[in-house]
């Protein structure tokens, strides 16, 4: 009987991202005929979410259900797996990772660190963000204080916004009191839990900064090697099942949340095309800068572009 302690980077009650961990524990415990004993811990119970990777790498924690974004400071390249601006739609994102060569580079980067990674938790598009000012042109972003993370944060900064780092718990009061003018948190189903519709006037779509995302199950490599082939495949296939349940779990919830936002008096607006264009151009230059500094970043970006080219005969027309 092998025990596997898994800590989630998200509160277990969070739709999809958090629920995936509970789903994983339930299935493995049931399907492994008692050979594996998974114990799932909620966010922060043992180790802070940002440090899950370190703890797994050192073997103090067996495994984590987390997002590649949490290690962006160490391996900037993996942000593309965790969901990047102007990325693919969810099914193609998964296809790129599973069959298009993306997953191999991902595994390679982590395995050099002694960590096994398994795609585990496919997510749909996020909200384009909450704002208390109208975005009619790129000029409107200049000097505005907004909370945006990761590559998207750099894109916004490039267009003249003043990007603020704010803990998640400070977003609501920050918007309420005008400390910030806008913020990106997650998808509508999760945004609604923070009550952002009560403190924002405008809700923008599409979620250009993250049209899809893949979370991950990371396991200490020694621990992973201690499983036999059947157990390994059980874990791998369970994660594949989770990808489907994860992406399905939020479609209706998102729709309901957006209707609630509307009912609460929030104006739902589309980003103007000119703004989206400028964002895309800013993103391209951010990518070029990063790619010149980091070899893996370039490799992953090239792989993503190659996949795009491979499917373009179909995807451009569909």
């Amino acid at each position: 009987k092998i025990r596997l302690d898994v800590q989630s980077a998200f509160p277990l009650a969070t739709p999809s991202a958090g629920e995936n961990a509970t789903y994983f524990g339930d299935r493995i415990n049931r399907l492994s005929h008692g050979e594996l004993e998974v114990k799932v811990y909620g966010a922060g119970k043992l180790v802070p979410s940002l440090q899950i990777f370190d703890a797994v790498q050192q073997g103090t924690l067996d495994a984590g259900m987390t997002s590649p974004h949490y290690v962006a400071g160490r391996f900037p390249a993996v942000q593309f797996f965790g969901g990047a601006p102007f990325g693919l739609d969810p099914v193609r994102h998964a296809d790129w990772i599973y069959n298009g060569g993306g997953g191999e580079i991902w595994s390679e980067i982590y395995e050099a660190q002694g960590v096994k990674t398994i795609p585990c938790g496919l997510m749909g598009a996020e909200s384009g963000g909450w704002y208390n000012f109208r975005i009619e042109s790129t000029e409107d972003l200049k000097g505005k204080k907004i909370r945006f993370a990761g590559l998207a944060g750099s894109v916004m900064a490039k267009l003249g916004a003043s990007v603020v780092l704010l803990p998640l718990s400070e977003v609501y009061p920050g918007l309420e009191r005008g400390v910030i003018d806008g913020a990106e948190v997650s998808m509508p189903a999760i945004d609604t839990l923070f009550g952002l519709q009560q403190v924002s006037q405008y809700f923008y779509l599409p979620g250009w900064h993250q049209p899809s995302a893949m979370n991950e199950l990371i396991i200490n490599l020694n621990k992973w090697d201690s499983f036999d082939a059947e157990q390994q495949s059980l874990i791998y296939e369970t994660c594949k099942a989770i990808n489907l349940s994860s992406i399905m779990s939020t479609e209706t919830l998102n729709a309901k949340a957006v209707s609630d936002f509307e009912a609460a008096g929030v104006e739902i607006l589309p980003f103007p095309d000119t703004v989206l264009n400028d964002l895309r151009m800013a993103f391209d230059s951010v990518v070029t800068e990063q790619a010149s500094k980091d070899g893996d970043f370039r490799r992953v970006w090239d792989s993503l572009q190659a996949y795009r080219a491979d499917i373009s005969a179909w995807s451009d027309r569909n």
Partner: peptide, 26 residues
């Protein structure tokens, strides 16, 4: 002991801020 190993690992990776426009040398 674990603090030094956390530092060692971070040094080995030349870890920076997770924000691309953040401070280097975490």
């Amino acid at each position: 002991v674990s603090a030094w190993s956390i530092f060692g690992y971070s040094w080995h990776l030349k870890e920076g801020s997770p924000m691309p426009s953040g401070l280097p040398a975490r």
